[in-house]
Design a protein around this nucleic acid. Structure first.
Lengths: 215, 215
DNA sequence: TTGAGTATACTTGTCAGACAATTTGAATGT
DNA sequence: ACATTCAAATTGTCTGACAAGTATACTCAA
């Protein structure tokens, strides 16, 4: 039997590494991302660097106009509200449908448990299980395109969070509690309740993040 | 005052024309789309053609593996169900929120009127106002990212429809009637009702399209 | 005749180098 | 101080080329 092996093209490798640097905050909107700079730092040709940049532009992680250098997308309060409202649209409808079938996604349950476990080890470790909780909900819908859309949103959310260092914005206990309420509502088949709780949950996070980014 | 003018790059021009050919069905999944072929037919260099193809791959209108020619995405019954379910997720939640504020989008009203007007002039002219009705609903949400997501779905929907020629699949009177019911529910503030009617509306369209594509 | 292996053509991935077009900021002159 | 011009930096696009992979046709043996 042939072991499934993954061969990445050079463009993909550069794209992935660049995306990592963006999402971890190692690359901020302060500095411009020129094609030549990327090409030299990775030791690839300029067309390759160009392709990688354009891929990330397609993911809305970079922005650039014609004949201008690319920059990491700066996400102001308005963008944050747009993103979180989009999340609310997607997730609340998903919760409604999960609730009608009383299907509680195990991934979300596990992620929520991890939130409590990570409470003691610094606030930054809290971001990851939080994101996992929500993606767990979305993946439970079993819809490929919805999942794709949501993941692109999550990239931007993560981008926001790293820009704010995301310290002290999240309270592990209250987050865990709200998540539990959502899951309980789903288990009880309370579609309306689940959607309502989620809306409040996202609204508070949204406003805190928007405020933190609104210097 | 400077009149806003749009200068399109060569890649964008090729991309737009290619997309048009795909969406009108002039380019089907029967023939392969090679970089060289695109380059020669448009009189551009191969890297330019390559960039255009990769853009369309990013829009899910073309698919291709490494070292293989691109093809127009063939959308089988499973894809159609995935797309329409995604539509249902997005649109039903939008309707709920529109209903709570009793906001009836004018664009949607106009588009629905056009459906009746176009009833006599052939079934194909019916597709366009139908799509406009639904995009009108989505744009009324005023969320940039939701609109972006939805437009990518609509590209694929249009792709499905042209592949089936979309004749006799749609009945103008019943579509108009269902749309009217939806708008009435929104105007009445009946969130649950609007979402329910839309779900049925999309479900029947989905199954008809899936059946037509399930040869 | 059939099957397996090889050889060949086609296509894409990547690179190098170059020039045009545009933006941007600085130098210049009034 | 302001407007103009100039130069540097950056991107858009092209040509040409080679490597690498895929798919098809072909040859030769059983």
């Amino acid at each position: 039997m042939t072991r499934p092996i993954a061969t990445k093209t050079v463009v993909d490798a550069v794209t992935d590494d660049l995306r990592g640097r963006i999402l971890t905050g190692s690359l901020t909107s302060a500095e411009a991302v020129t094609e030549l700079e990327i090409a030299t730092t990775y030791g690839v040709a300029r067309p390759t660097a160009k392709a990688a940049i354009e891929k990330l532009v397609g993911e809305n992680l970079l922005v650039r106009g014609t004949h201008k250098s690319a920059r990491v997308a700066r996400l102001g309060p308005d963008s944050v509200r747009d993103i979180y409202l989009a999340r609310a649209y997607l997730e609340s409808e998903i919760l409604r449908r999960l609730a009608t079938s009383r299907a509680v996604p195990e991934d979300a349950v596990r992620a929520n448990a991890d939130i409590l476990a990570a409470a003691s080890s610094g606030d930054l470790a809290l971001v990851e299980p939080d994101l996992r909780f929500h993606t767990g909900l979305v993946e439970a819908a079993g819809n490929e395109r919805i999942a794709r859309m949501y993941s692109s949103l999550m990239s931007e959310v993560r981008l926001c969070m790293t820009r704010v260092q995301s310290l002290h914005l999240l309270n592990s206990e209250s987050i865990h509690a709200e998540h539990s309420l959502i899951l309980d509502a789903v288990a009880a088949g309370d579609a309306e309740g689940a959607a309502r709780i989620l809306d409040r949950h996202l609204a508070t996070a949204r406003e805190r993040l928007a405020e933190a980014l609104g210097e």
